[in-house]
């Protein structure tokens, strides 16, 4: 498979790694300092709201990763450039992990806030379904042995899933208005204090840097796989 990457692009991907790793670690150090020490506790939720600084970025990136997954699948259909198929399956695993993290941290946050580990709240439920969409995508890709075919099929599934997300969200929201017990307080207050914005911003940046790091490593794996395949073909 021709990856259609220029040497310059490959060079950037290969060279960027040490820089990315260092900046991720630095950003997380700052992020932890701000989120655990610098920022004040929330006056309603107390210190427990510090979980937000990891929960919110992972939830954002879980959703963003699925958007990238579906977007690159669409682009793959239009251009047939294999790089989009590689982007799609590289981002899928990362997205699934972030969905898992946001579910678990959300649940841990829920215990002190709502008094229960899990609430059948619209957001949590849709997130849970998103996790299974990721899982289906990855399983389907793995279970088809012909990888050329697998990338075509899983791209179709990614798009179907993306079409389905708003429908799922809509139906879960609607269902929630029927079943939601009224006692539960809202997660996010409408305005966040500036002292909380800073750690949230730094943690988001750090998480983003981490995502890019892993993403580049996965791209390098694909590039090497491609090289190995070509050498074997020549032999």
């Amino acid at each position: 498979m021709n990856l259609r990457l220029t040497n310059k692009q490959i060079n950037i991907i290969e060279k960027a790694n040490p820089f990315l790793i260092v900046s991720t670690i630095v950003a997380f150090t700052f992020g932890l300092y701000f989120s655990l020490l610098q920022s004040p506790p929330d006056y309603i939720q107390g210190d427990s709201m510090r979980i937000m600084y990891i929960h919110v970025p992972s939830a954002w990136f879980a959703l963003m990763a699925y958007t990238i997954l579906a977007g690159s699948s669409v682009l793959w259909f239009i251009t047939r450039n294999p790089i989009f198929s590689i982007i799609a399956r590289s981002i899928a695993q990362i997205g699934m992990i972030f969905t898992l993290i946001s579910l678990v941290t959300g649940s841990i946050w829920g215990k002190p806030t709502w008094g229960v580990w899990w609430v059948w709240d619209a957001r949590l439920t849709s997130m849970l379904l998103l996790f299974f969409l990721y899982l289906a995508y990855i399983f389907l890709w793995q279970s088809i042995t012909n990888k050329d075919l697998a990338s075509k099929i899983s791209a179709a599934l990614a798009i179907v899933g993306f079409v389905n997300i708003p429908i799922i969200k809509f139906s879960v929201d609607w269902w929630n208005t029927l079943h939601q017990p009224a006692t539960i307080s809202k997660l996010s207050s409408p305005s966040i204090d500036i002292s909380m914005m800073v750690p949230l911003f730094i943690m988001t940046l750090a998480t983003f840097l981490f995502l890019v790091t892993v993403f580049f490593i996965r791209l390098r794996i694909e590039i090497l796989d491609n090289k190995i395949l070509r050498i074997r073909e020549v032999e």
Partner: peptide, 16 residues
């Protein structure tokens, strides 16, 4: 595998 793919797609139907 098919169940994992299908059930999330069934969810809106079940809800309504």
């Amino acid at each position: 595998l098919k169940a994992i793919i299908v059930i999330p797609l069934f969810v809106p139907f079940l809800i309504f």
